[in-house]
């Protein structure tokens, strides 16, 4: 599905990602953890195609294609979804109109006719139920005046609408109460299929109680310094990142 090879990237001349290698296979869930500022969101930004991050070395192959050559909207239409750490407000643009445009752009890309108004509204209704999002939110402008938790749920709702092949969820669990956390996790679990994959960026092991990852990576100072099974998340929760930092330093010394 996704092969990242020795990816290096910088922002404004400052090197942030310092050689990341990672492979995500169809059906897998990867968790990425790591201290603040280590580059998790930057990695997500590179995958989604944000321009201000400059790729200086390495390659990313997505479904056999060079991802870095594709425009952000083509990546989206090819099935990459990014759940934003900080979802953006778009005043004046209704969720309905926004999602309708997005869904129909996806359909066009796949050679399908646009959905009729009634089919579209039915799809909205079904997916709203799936992610237990308040009906009223879907009638408002995109994220405008949504609470922090509502914004995160709205990301999951959009993911459900667009049914991506590879979803990257950047701290979608942060700031959620326990019920909302369950909703988000359920959203992911219901969408999970043998042919789609998830990269879940999180600080909290509790999310991983609901969404069971196949692999857990630790990103530290722009590098993946540790990769293991889900037990790694528990260990991190218990011991923090200090031991990892020490390990890294020792490695560098030795």
């Amino acid at each position: 599905m996704l092969i990242i090879n020795n990816l290096k990237a910088s922002i404004g001349g400052k090197s942030i990602l310092k050689g990341i290698t990672l492979e995500v296979k169809p059906g897998e869930i990867h968790a990425i953890m790591g201290p603040n500022g280590s580059g998790k969101s930057t990695l997500a930004a590179v995958l989604a195609g944000r321009e201000f991050v400059e790729v200086t070395e390495g390659s990313v192959t997505y479904l056999g294609k060079n991802l870095l050559d594709m425009s952000p909207e083509d990546r989206a239409k090819e099935g990459i979804f990014l759940g934003f750490q900080y979802p953006i407000e778009i005043p004046g643009v209704s969720m309905v109109n926004f999602m309708k445009t997005a869904v129909n752009e996806h359909r066009k890309h796949n050679g399908l006719d646009p959905l009729s108004a009634s089919d579209f509204l039915k799809l909205m209704r079904d997916k709203k139920e799936l992610v237990e999002i308040d009906s009223k939110l879907a009638n408002r402008s995109v994220n405008e005046g949504f609470s922090g938790g509502e914004k995160k749920k709205n990301e999951i709702f959009q993911m459900a609408m667009l049914e991506p092949k590879l979803a990257i969820l950047d701290e979608t669990d942060s700031g959620l109460d326990i019920d909302a956390l369950r909703v988000v996790a359920n959203g992911v679990n219901k969408l999970k299929r043998p042919d789609n994959s998830f990269i879940v960026i999180t600080h909290y092991q509790r999310l991983l109680d609901y969404i069971v990852p196949d692999v857990v990576h630790v990103l530290y100072d722009g590098r993946i310094v540790k990769t293991a099974g889900r037990e790694l998340a528990l260990e991190l929760e218990e011991k923090g990142y200090d031991w990892i930092k020490k390990e890294v330093e020792n490695n560098v010394l030795s």
């Binding site: 952000p72 934003f84 643009v93 445009t101 997005a102």
Partner: peptide
Amino acid sequence: FYCNQRGISTEDAIGLIVNG
């Protein structure tokens, strides 16, 4: 960019925002 990430081109995104 948020629109782009949902598959909406920049021109269409501006159209959506301006028409809103």
